[in-house]
Simulated scan of single mutants.
Amino acid sequence: MRCGITLFIQGYQDWDRYEAAEKGEDAPPIDPELDRKRFTEELDSALKLEDLGYDSIWTVEHHVSPYTMVTNPIQLLTYLAGATSRVDLGTMVTVVPWHHPVRIAEDISMLQYVLRGRQPFIGFGRGAARREFGQLGFDMNESKQRFAEGVEIIKLALTQERFSYDGEIHHFQDVTLRPRPLDPQTLIDNLCFSWGSPTSAPVGARLGLRPLVIPQKPWDQYHDDLAEFARARAEVGLPAVNPKIHMCVYVGETEEQARENASRFIPEYADSATRNYETYSDHFATTKGYEHYASVARTVASKEVMSKAMGESYLANHVWGTPDQCVAKLRTIAEQFHPDEFMMVMRYGNMPQDVAEASTELFAREVLPAVHEMPVGEPIEYLAATG
């Protein structure tokens, strides 16, 4: 089993100031030193990962808020490609509706070149945060169409020397991409999709993408999503594939230490996600394509209630404990879902660098060897089980 690390680079400590300024309240200006310090620390930590034995480094894309400060994942991965020599690199995710699709294809092709034989794994998503769509100037109501057309165009650009495309939003005539990808089929085979609502899973599946699970609910609820994913792939003649699975992880020397730090920092991550996506807000009710989010928001009394519920869910479902406990939890997830890779975020919320690095190094010494020994099962044939 492969195992990588995801860089979130959060600015959690700035949420109260940010939300006050957003409401027009009296708030101090951003302290740029906070961003510089967090970015510097996380890059320094990232450059130690391949020597610790990890197989890959991943990152995400977000804008505007303190949720994460990675605005261009492929740009960050290009830096890491030059600063490392062994690890593969991946996005978790690039948000397709926020970009010109040919530019995404160009960036992917260039990333493949600078990796010099290593693999880029590009995950796609369609975004769900009102602020990000608004600041970037895109209509959130168009996200589903922009996502589908964007992925189709990216695949055409990577696989065909010249192509034309006439969609509802995008129109291209006799377009070519340079440099041509070194291995187009491998790039296509490695394209992934992460979804937030169950109805979105088949969308990425029909586009030929692989499942990338970023858990926001109990693990057992993902079997239905993955069954729909497999069904949608089968409808377009594609076989079942292994998912990639992400989670928050904390490993401590003792169960008491692990519980203390997990109980502090994992809920901070959940709180940050709640505030970024505004999953308690009624704006989803009037936004096309986000009906699932609207139904969730209708059940939530307040931001605080949602944040607390998400924190409890993350603590119950993500991976933390002693090395032996983490091995057991990861083995259970592997047996249930047959992933071919785990991608773990090891620093989140207000977790200090030394706490995150101690956990990352302990995981590398006492958990990673066991993960590497875990067999990768055959893709689960959900269709056989569901008919």
Rank of each mutant, 00 (worst) to 15 (best):
A157M: 08
Y222Q: 02
A240F: 01
V93G: 07
K217C: 00
H338S: 13
V376H: 08
D16T: 07
Q135R: 13
Q353E: 15
A262V: 05
A83Q: 14
T68G: 15
E373I: 02
S263N: 10
Y222R: 04
W219K: 05
Q353N: 06
D174C: 01
Q221V: 10
G196I: 03
E19N: 04
D271N: 06
Y348I: 04
L89N: 09
D35E: 11
N276D: 14
R146N: 04
N261G: 00
F39T: 11
E33F: 11
Q173S: 09
F138A: 03
G321L: 01
V87M: 14
G125L: 08
E335G: 09
D14I: 04
L330W: 03
V371F: 07
W15K: 12
I104D: 14
A201V: 13
K155Y: 10
E22L: 11
Q185L: 03
L212K: 05
S197M: 15
R126S: 07
L47I: 10
Q135A: 14
E152G: 03
F337T: 08
G117R: 05
F337G: 05
T84Q: 03
V102H: 10
Y269N: 08
E373M: 12
L177D: 02
V371S: 04
H100C: 13
T186N: 09
W98P: 12
V296I: 15
Y280C: 02
I333A: 11
G137K: 15
I9H: 08
Q336C: 10
A201K: 15
I188E: 09
M110H: 08
Y18E: 01
E253G: 04
A201C: 14
E255C: 03
K155T: 08
E25G: 06
P267H: 15
S65K: 11
E253P: 00
V371M: 04
Y79N: 08
Q353D: 09
I153G: 03
P323W: 14
V203W: 11
R118H: 06
A27L: 01
M306K: 10
P339F: 07
E61P: 01
Q173Y: 12
P243Q: 05
S164L: 02
V203T: 13
G167C: 04
V95C: 15
D31V: 05
F147W: 12
P239M: 13
S194D: 03
G208T: 08
Y113M: 05
L209V: 03
F8W: 14
S307Q: 09
A364I: 06
M344L: 14
D271G: 01
R17K: 04
L362Q: 02
R233W: 13
N317V: 02
L136Q: 15
P66T: 05
E366F: 01
C3S: 10
P29A: 12
H100A: 11
Q185P: 00
D224H: 10
P323F: 08
R86Q: 13
A384H: 14
G82H: 06
V213T: 06
G123P: 10
T78M: 09
N242K: 10
H246M: 13
F342C: 04
N190Y: 01
G134H: 07
